[in-house]
Design a protein around this nucleic acid. Structure first.
Lengths: 234, 234
DNA sequence: ACCTGAACACCGTTCAAGT
DNA sequence: ACCTGAACACCGTTCAAGT
């Protein structure tokens, strides 16, 4: 065996390697730090070399999302199995919370998924699984369709929230609760009433696990009621 | 009256004028087209002049959101009035659909609101109104707090959806439904089953009015059931 | 087939200089 | 007090040239 040359250490650059490195860099330093020059540097190569493996930066960002969702699909499977037939709520809940776990590992992914309209095959495959689960649970296509819309980004494990309870340690602990009480009496009273001691496992703002699951369960309950016809709202 | 000089035509540049012009430019050509040089051009001034009225671009983006939400607050009022006391669901529904109408006029706003953590006074004031409405409707602070999380960005009128039904005219009408049926049988069947003829009044993707209201109503129904104790889920 | 270096057309922003 | 012009340190990307 001639074993090639030792310079293979630096070689082997291909699309997948580029995408994995980009994902790792974004995980580590955020999406803003992901420039072509910076990524090239990370891979020991000039920025322009990357263009041999990706079409352009947009293509790279799409590829990053695609890679992550492929990994997610491998974890959740095709959906619509026996578990969904006997209890679609639990099956859906498990699927969505798995997606959420993946998104928590790549906090830049939700923003990226939302900001680009590209609906790649892995993303379609994920939603096919959601739909298969709904159908196994007895949903009509019409109600399943509404459900996909109602779940929105929650179906794939994230929830962009806006309400960021002040004092949650995030660089603004000096909230003037006195002055706030005058202008925003209800918010001030709520903050005094509700103790927020949850861990910092958030996507974006104050979207912690408990709150995510609360919102998800309200939706799932409401959808189940509509499926069984318990809600006859015109 | 000396009436000053006629050069006042171009003068009068101030923070509000800059923000209004930025909003108008973003409405017209999208957020990507909003560069400092471009905006300066629009106002008949060098880009660097803008820095006399705003601290930097981030400050300007914050100001744009702030301006819009101030206008929204003027339209919806403080919340928690007699209407909320007699029927909080309808009061909330009206408030949220008004917010949605504003967001539809400034389609770049949702993305901007989500992407920055700045929680400006007008935004806090809007949520104070949401909370006041919930309290008037008989919510405990604890349930109201969960509700704010559960509503998420829906509370202020938008909903980032991911499911973008192909064939909705949006530059990808050439979907190979044959090939799709093999890989994604449920999605293909649903598309065949559900006719999507809604107007193009969407924020982002396929988030049209009907679907937005469906998801909102599922949530409001579920929340009302929790408020009255109809749902006793541990 | 893959990588490089220089260059282009853009950014946001600083700074010294004008009035 | 407000505006300007040149400059700086970045972008993504093109292109001709190397091996």
């Amino acid at each position: 065996m001639t074993q090639a040359t030792t310079k293979t250490v630096r070689a082997g650059l291909n699309r997948d390697r580029v995408l994995r490195a980009a994902i790792e860099l974004a995980d580590r330093e955020g999406l803003a730090a992901l420039s072509m020059r910076r990524l090239g540097n990370e891979l020991g190569v000039e920025a322009m070399s990357l263009y041999n493996h990706i079409a352009n930066k947009d293509d790279m960002l799409d590829g990053m999302v695609q890679t992550i969702v492929e990994d997610l699909n491998a974890r959740v499977g095709p959906g619509g199995g026996a578990d969904a037939q006997s209890d679609w709520v639990t099956a859906m809940r498990t699927r969505i919370l798995t997606a959420r776990a993946v998104m928590l590992q790549h906090k830049w992914a939700p923003g990226l998924i939302e900001s680009r309209s590209s609906f790649s095959p892995p993303l379609v495959a994920y939603y096919e699984g959601v739909l298969a689960t709904l159908r196994a649970g007895g949903f009509s296509y019409d109600l399943a369709h509404h459900t996909l819309h109602a779940l929105g980004s929650k179906a794939i494990g994230f929830n962009q929230e806006l309400f960021n309870p002040v004092g949650a340690g995030d660089s603004q602990p000096d909230v003037d609760i006195e002055a706030m009480a005058e202008q925003f009496p209800h918010l001030a009273e709520m903050l005094a009433d509700v103790v927020h001691e949850g861990p910092e496992t958030t996507i974006g703002w104050c979207d912690d696990q408990t709150e995510f699951e609360f919102g998800l369960d309200v939706l799932l309950d409401g959808l189940e009621r509509r499926r069984t016809g318990a809600t006859r709202r015109k």
